[in-house]
C-alpha cells in the first residue's frame, strides 16, 4: 500500500510539474500584440468612473483612425478610444458591455469594418484572446460560449495559450519577458494609436460598388448593441473609415441606422468632401495614418457637437484630457 501511495505521489508530482511549467510559460506565448491590449485595458480601468462622454469602439480601423486628441483640441470632446485590433462585431459588443460598468458615455462611436463578421465555432485567436483582459467575466463567458461553442479544445487554448500558440516560440522578443505595468502610450493618447508611415493608394480602389447584406448572427449582435446602448441611454454613431478595396456594407448600415434612429457616417461616401488624399492619408491598405485620422476625427467631432449635448471639456479645469495630452503644467 505504501508503495502504491509513493508511486501515485510520484505521478502526481510529475504531472503537477508539467502543469506548473505550462502555466508559467503561458504569458510568454500569448498571441502577438495582445500584451498591448492588456496594457490598454488596464489603463482604461484606471480612468475615473463615468468621466468619459464619448467612447470609441471597433477594430484597428477605429483604433488608428480616430484621434481623441483632435476631438478634444478642436471640439473639447472628452473621448476614449476603446477600439482594438481585429474586432468582429461580437467582440465589439463585448468591449461595449464590459466598458459600461466603468463609464456611462453619452455617445458611442462604433466603427463597422467587421460588422458582417462574428466569431462562431472559432479557433482561439488573438482577437478572442484579447477578451482575457476584460473584467466583466459574465460578458466574457457568454462571448466565449458563442465564439467557441462546445469546442473544448478552443477553451484549452484560451486558458493555456502555450498549447495553441506554441508556435510563438519563434517570435519571442525581449518585451515578452518583461512585464510593464504602466503604459504611457495609451495614457497620453487616451487609447488612440497614432500611426506614421504612408502607403500610396489610388482613389479608384476605394469603392463601395458591390453591396452585401448581413447574416442573422451579425444582425443579432447589432440588435444587442442597440439594446444595451438604449438601456444605458447612450446614443450611437456608426462610422466606417476608408480602406483599400470595396466597402460592402454601406447600404445595409445606412438603412439599419435610419431604422434605429442612429447616425451613420460613411467616409467612403464622404471621401472627397472630407478631402482625404489617397496618396498621403493611409499607413497601409487598411488603415489611416495620423493625417487621415485627423480628418476623420475632425468630421466626427463636428457631427458629435452638432447632434449631442456634450460638455466642452476644455472649460473644465484640470480635466483628464488636458493632463494626459499636454501634461500637468500645460495650458
Amino acid at each position: 500500500m505504501k508503495q502504491v501511495m509513493k508511486r501515485a505521489l510520484s505521478c502526481l508530482i510529475t504531472f503537477g510539474l508539467i502543469a506548473l511549467i505550462l502555466v508559467k510559460l503561458s504569458p510568454l506565448f500569448r498571441p502577438e500584440d495582445t500584451a498591448d491590449c492588456q496594457l490598454k485595458a488596464n489603463f482604461f480601468y484606471t480612468l475615473p468612473k463615468n468621466s468619459v462622454e464619448v467612447m470609441i469602439y471597433g477594430s484597428s480601423h477605429a483604433y488608428r483612425g480616430v484621434s481623441t486628441e483632435k476631438l478634444y483640441a478642436k471640439y473639447g470632446i472628452g473621448a476614449f478610444n476603446h477600439a482594438w485590433n481585429w474586432q468582429k462585431i461580437d467582440t465589439t459588443r463585448l468591449f461595449i458591455e464590459d466598458s459600461l460598468a466603468y463609464q456611462k458615455p453619452k455617445v458611442a462611436l462604433i466603427e463597422t469594418y467587421h460588422v458582417h463578421a462574428v466569431n462562431r465555432n472559432a479557433d482561439p485567436s488573438a482577437e478572442i484572446f484579447s477578451s482575457k483582459y476584460l473584467r466583466n467575466r459574465n460578458a466574457v463567458n457568454e462571448y466565449l460560449k458563442n465564439s467557441f461553442g462546445t469546442n473544448y479544445k478552443s477553451y484549452l487554448g484560451y486558458y493555456l495559450p502555450v498549447i495553441v500558440f506554441h508556435e510563438n516560440w519563434n517570435i519571442l522578443k525581449k518585451s515578452n519577458f518583461i512585464d510593464s505595468e504602466t503604459d504611457e502610450f495609451h495614457r497620453i493618447n487616451m487609447g488612440y494609436c497614432k500611426t506614421d508611415g504612408i502607403t500610396v493608394l489610388s482613389r479608384s480602389s476605394i469603392t463601395c460598388n458591390e453591396q452585401s447584406g448581413l447574416d442573422s448572427d451579425a444582425k443579432e449582435e447589432l440588435e444587442k448593441i442597440i439594446a444595451v446602448c438604449k438601456e444605458n441611454d447612450i446614443k450611437i454613431v456608426f462610422f466606417t473609415t476608408p480602406f483599400y478595396g470595396n466597402h460592402a456594407y454601406h447600404d445595409v448600415m445606412q438603412e439599419y441606422s435610419e431604422a434605429h434612429d442612429c447616425i451613420y457616417v460613411d467616409f467612403f461616401e464622404l471621401f472627397d468632401e472630407v478631402g482625404f488624399d489617397p496618396e498621403k492619408d493611409f499607413s497601409d491598405g487598411g488603415h489611416l495614418n495620423v493625417y487621415g485620422a485627423e480628418k476623420v476625427s475632425d468630421y466626427l467631432g463636428k457631427v458629435l457637437v452638432e447632434n449631442f449635448d456634450l460638455t466642452d471639456m476644455r472649460e473644465v479645469e484640470g480635466n483628464l484630457w488636458q493632463k494626459n495630452f499636454y501634461g500637468d503644467n500645460a495650458d
Binding site: 511549467i21 506554441h166 516560440w169
Partner: peptide
C-alpha cells in the same frame, strides 16, 4: 519527464 512533455508541446 516534465521538461520532455513541455518540450514536445512547445516545439511539436
Amino acid at each position: 519527464i516534465a521538461v520532455s512533455v513541455c518540450f514536445i508541446l512547445l516545439f511539436g
